[in-house]
Nucleic acid binder design. Structure first.
Lengths: 242, 242
DNA sequence: ACCTGAACACCGTTCAAGT
DNA sequence: ACCTGAACACCGTTCAAGT
């Protein structure tokens, strides 16, 4: 790699996998950050690595973005750009589509999963499309007043919950840690944990906290469908009780 | 503060809020880490700050703990130590108690919330008490085979989901950011987002992604009860359909 | 066995300076 | 307006050395 200071013309440096040397702008920074996250993971997306991939000095990024935290929240917003579904006849279809869209979006960029659990709250992108859509669907379902906000928070939590866990990064000790988990599952005491022992074949590497791979290597699509059904059935039943 | 190198006797240094100078051990390290997280937040819990609070050199901690990541997962395990409820007659009561216990545990240590979303998966503490209890409850409910693992993953995801979001850390710009959120809520277009506009008084600072405070300053207890009801109703309805 | 102390390879962010 | 370049105050982790 060439030295950073050996750049006498002041021209944009050419990094290894750098994109075009077009003028820097916010969208290009966000796109490059997402590419870096997809390739190397969330904590490898430092401002220094990001700047290097863009062929600029680290501090140049601060002209367009005020902090790493806000940059990452914009990356998440970009990933979730199109999760708000098209209007649907049945409110159940709208909510189901939102959950599936969110799941699909994160599956394409699994390394942003930790952001889903901690930044979805502070989205604030003034884009209330999904918020309005979910509220309208829940109101159509029959929720109003305090129950509407309860149902809304329930749904948003459900939207993030499963997917956050499914793609949560597992320890990097891929060698030792994986065998340790497998060993602890193999030595489960059937006296002490009978239900676990009896269903081990179904749960091994498929159940949360019983896995040594995450959703990238061991998808949980069947459980996700069950999860979506549970949320929608729960909302249906609750609204019928009023 | 006294210099770190001015410690000629080799005695334990006395830090500002340090505990007893008892011999270092894993439990003391975990307890000190949790105290530091409670006081200053998750990312202020560096090995260096932690060591300083224990009156030792940063690298001393590595004798007891192999990495910061595993230390934090042990801190989470300690916080969730007693979430597994006592056996209950009705499976619904067991699952509800587990969710309430988890919520209560995190409420006491809200700054660990991000760990809940990303480390609960890799618990691996060989403590399968909760896993077995949840599986037994779901089997008692009537789930078996693939549906059991679907129900299990659904419940674990539900266990972490709401609480993770409720206590997720919001941007530190408490001055500017809070007003920005409030302003964007005040200027919501009733034409474009009618349901949101009509229910703004219920949702302002109470709805996810419509808040400028997190669960510490603005609890969401009512929504949480709604959420628990939704999960349990959903599972009840799904099992009845089989 | 347990801890010190130096060192390595990083971080995010601020700020003055260039063009 | 936009970027460079140096600097500040940090990081996690490794490893040799002490006791």
């Amino acid at each position: 790699m060439t030295s950073k200071t050996a750049n006498p013309r002041g021209r944009r440096k050419k990094a290894a996998g750098a994109d075009t040397q077009s003028p820097l702008n916010k969208d290009a920074i966000i796109a490059a950050a997402l590419a870096l996250i997809d390739r190397d993971g969330l904590d490898k997306c430092s401002l220094r690595n990001l700047a290097s991939s863009l062929g600029v000095y680290p501090t140049a990024i601060y002209w367009y973005v005020s902090s790493r935290e806000l940059l990452l929240s914009e990356v998440l917003a970009k990933v979730l750009e199109h999760v708000a579904p098209a209007p649907a006849q049945r409110w159940q279809d709208y909510l189901r589509a939102a959950m599936v869209n969110c799941h699909d979006a994160v599956r394409l960029h699994p390394n942003i999963a930790p952001l889903l659990g901690s930044q979805l709250v502070s989205n604030s992108s003034t884009d209330f499309t999904l918020v309005e859509g979910v509220l309208a669907a829940l109101q159509q379902a029959g929720f109003s007043g305090p129950a509407l906000s309860g149902a809304y928070n329930t749904f948003i939590a459900a939207l993030a919950g499963f997917t956050t866990l499914e793609y949560a990064p597992l320890p990097e000790n891929t060698e030792a840690w994986q065998h340790q988990v497998q060993e602890s599952l193999r030595t489960v005491d059937p006296q002490q944990h009978p239900t676990l022992a009896r269903n081990m074949d179904q749960l091994s590497n498929r159940g949360f906290s019983l896995r040594w791979q995450n959703g990238v290597d061991a998808a949980l699509d069947e459980s996700f469908r069950f999860y979506v059904d549970t949320i929608l059935c729960g909302l249906e039943t609750l609204v019928a009780r009023r």
